[in-house]
């Protein structure tokens, strides 16, 4: 369970988030959709306690993230696949995660296997990784502690179509066992392929939310998305 309850965030006089409320239920993959700068990353950082909301609150597994005991072993997060020290190898980054969470070192190889990085790739420094490889590494890092909830910011960015297919299978299996997944994207077709629920935001406000099928209502999700974001822009302009 992931829950946003009336979360607002004011940044230097600008409302980055405005009364955001939604829930990601157990077993759901919810796509957090919106144009660049809509507030998706801000919301996710607030969710994991890296940023403080101006008002409102967010919880994961029923508690504020920062109050969870060893949150990394209950909630998997990937906030920016590019945010890694370029001089560290992929294997080393996972090893540090495993040490922090107190897991057996064998978990590193299990996860590398799971995300499809070879032993050779894992021994290269991340500075030489493609964006797709960094995403796989980041998703692997999020999965280290066998979490019950996943928070992924733009995880499909840089993945090729096979990669997106792989991620869909992975996340379906994950939500099938009762876990909650919240993933953001600014690309509609990515979300459509992976998620069962969608929350659309624009200019910091939730524009519409529901299941992918509900939101389609006989027309393409893209139409709805473009109309709503255009309206949001007009109303704040």
């Amino acid at each position: 369970m992931i829950e946003f309850s009336h979360v607002s965030k004011v940044y230097k006089g600008v409302k980055a988030l405005d009364d955001v409320s939604f829930t990601v239920g157990a077993g759901s993959v919810t796509g957090f959709l919106g144009p660049n700068g809509a507030g998706k990353s801000t919301a996710m950082r607030i969710l994991v306690g890296l940023s403080r909301p101006t008002s409102g609150s967010a919880t994961v597994l029923g508690r504020p993230y920062t109050e969870l005991d060893c949150p990394g072993s209950q909630v998997g997060t990937l906030l920016d696949a590019g945010a890694q020290h370029p001089g560290r190898t992929g294997r080393e980054i996972l090893t540090l995660g495993v040490m922090m969470l107190g897991l057996p070192v064998s978990r590193v190889d299990e996860v590398l296997d799971l995300v499809g990085l070879t032993g050779r790739e894992s021994r290269r420094t991340v500075g030489g990784y493609s964006l797709g490889m960094r995403q796989r590494l980041g998703i692997g890092h999020a999965l280290l502690g066998r979490p019950k909830a996943l928070i992924l910011d733009e995880p499909a960015n840089g993945l090729d179509p096979q990669g997106i297919q792989w991620m869909r299978e992975l996340l379906r299996g994950f939500s099938g066992s009762g876990c909650s997944v919240l993933l953001s994207s600014h690309l509609l077709h990515e979300v459509e392929q992976v998620a069962d629920h969608v929350v659309m935001i624009g200019r910091g406000r939730v524009l519409i939310q529901g299941t992918v099928d509900e939101l389609r209502r006989g027309r393409s999700l893209e139409q709805t998305f473009l109309e709503l974001t255009a309206n949001a822009d007009r109303s704040t302009a």
């Binding site: 994991v48 306690g49 920062t66 990394g72 906030l79 920016d80 945010a83 890694q84 995660g97």
Partner: peptide, 8 residues
Amino acid sequence: LTTFALEP
């Protein structure tokens, strides 16, 4: 981002 998410 990673460090303080694992240990707030």
